[in-house]
């Protein structure tokens, strides 16, 4: 464990908490892509199947449970409790355009052709594209609530911190997880234009609106 990974996990948790607070307090999931949240729940489900079989540490187990809970509660709030505020018309990204290539690639490019390893690989590839429906929705509506931009900032920051964690682990313990690193780079690249808008607009007190 290193400081980049801890900060990354905290940033990831913070993002999920910000989203839950936004939905709960505003009693609305306007501007939130339910499809992205479904994909995140799928990412955690397919990645944390070893929750009961492969004990790594208390921290690892607790965080996996918390992440799974946050993901499913968020999906429930969007499609259940506050479904009347769900903007399904603008949440129109075709999930099959993501799932088909990701499933195909996880069968082609993995470390070993076993069910748990293919599911782990699927979760890594899926996570790198899971935010696209959300970014697509913002580009379609042309704007995002400020609290939503904070959610996206910490969500993007988490994987950027993981990139630093992998550099650190490569130099200190010669650890190199190619599938996770390549996917993490792709994932972080998707946030770049958002990061630019966040830093140049939101941090200056303006509302995030796309030209």
């Amino acid at each position: 464990m290193n400081v980049f990974r801890i900060l990354g996990d905290v940033s990831h948790l913070l993002a999920m908490v910000i989203l839950l607070v936004k939905i709960w307090r505003s009693k609305s999931c306007a501007g939130i892509s339910g499809k992205s949240q479904i994909l995140f729940a799928l990412v955690f489900t397919s990645r944390y199947l070893d929750l009961l079989t492969n004990f790594i540490s208390i921290y690892n187990t607790v965080m996996k449970v918390v992440f799974l809970l946050c993901a499913y509660v968020t999906v429930y709030l969007i499609y259940g409790k506050f479904r009347k505020t769900f903007d399904s018309e603008n949440d129109s990204f075709r999930l099959e355009f993501l799932l088909v290539p990701v499933i195909g690639l996880s069968f082609l490019e993995n470390y070993s052709f076993t069910p748990t390893e293919i599911l782990w690989t699927f979760s890594i590839y899926l996570e790198s594209v899971a935010i696209l429906p959300q970014l697509f929705m913002i580009s379609k509506t042309g704007e995002a609530e400020t609290i939503t931009t904070h959610y996206l900032f910490f969500l993007g920051l988490y994987r950027a911190l993981y990139l630093a964690n992998w550099i650190w682990r490569y130099h200190t313990e010669n650890f190199y997880d190619q599938i996770a690193v390549v996917s993490g780079v792709v994932q972080t690249i998707f946030y770049c234009d958002f990061f630019y808008l966040y830093i140049t607009k939101v941090l200056k007190g303006k509302k995030l609106s796309l030209p």
């Binding site: 990974r5 996990d9 990831h12 990645r47 070893d50 492969n54 790594i56 690892n60 965080m63 996996k64 992440f67 470390y111 070993s112 390893e117 782990w120 993981y162 964690n165 997880d177 996770a180």
Partner: peptide, 10 residues
């Protein structure tokens, strides 16, 4: 060498 498949990261 076979990859360490412990996947100790979240």
């Amino acid at each position: 060498e076979p990859k360490d498949l412990s996947h100790d990261e979240l």
